[in-house]
Amino acid sequence: MATAATTSRQKVGWGTANLVVVALAMIPVLWMVSLSFKTPAAILDPSYFPSQWTWGNYSSILSTSQFIRPLVNSIGIGLISTFIAVLLACMAAYAVARLRFPGKSLLIGMALLIAMFPAISLVTPMFNIERSLGLFNTWPGLIIPYVAFGLPLGIYTLSAFFREIPWELEKAAKVDGATPFQAFVKVIAPLAAPGMVTTAILVFLACWNEFLFAISFTSTLASRTAPASMAYFSGGSVFTVPTGPIAAAAVVITIPIIVFVLFFQRRIIAGLTSGAVKG
């Protein structure tokens, strides 16, 4: 048997499969990029690449508060929600991974339930609650549900990471007279930092992506996030569909994701799989 021939043929096969995967993943993304550079005339031409290039779509969305303000809201709401969710999840995950206390499985069951929760079921009651508490159309009105939905993800991912930490160090710290809390803050937290970064990325991506709450609990630019704002874009006149500006906005909100994916590919994959797959 010509083993060498088979392996090189296999190599070509897997190489082709790789190319197909990359192409399927990228073609729809590059189409958005292409659209965002098309002039209004070129948009009415169905070719994949622009026949006339322009930066006009970008300058038009980046010069109006219709998009800049939602972008600021998205970044602010995303960062605050991520910070709170990771902090709270960190505390709970430490307890789950390390401490013995009754009610632990209840907590895990609750987190699982929320991870599977249909968000639409909350929209109607939360809408009314937020209206009566004055939270409707404010940052906290989105931050609070985002934290709640980030928590299960955070607790799962972090408790998986926390079990990898060499806990003898904690014991050593306790022998040296540290309280459990000190042992957590001074010894374990720095070791847990990589897991926390991963979790923070996953939670931030979830907040950045969220759309249902973002259009349901906001009504003006005061708190509308970037994905929600795109549904309210208008063209130069009532008769123009704002295809170019929407495509440009879509590209702008995709940039942070590309950056995360390029720099943290390994971490994101480890985080995604750690919570769900067991050895």
Partner: peptide, 18 residues
């Protein structure tokens, strides 16, 4: 893997417009 992560990470609304 990086290419595969992009559809996962992309904002659903942005991809839907595409």
């Amino acid at each position: 893997r990086t290419a595969a992560l992009i559809p996962y990470g992309i904002v659903t609304v942005a991809a839907a417009y595409g």
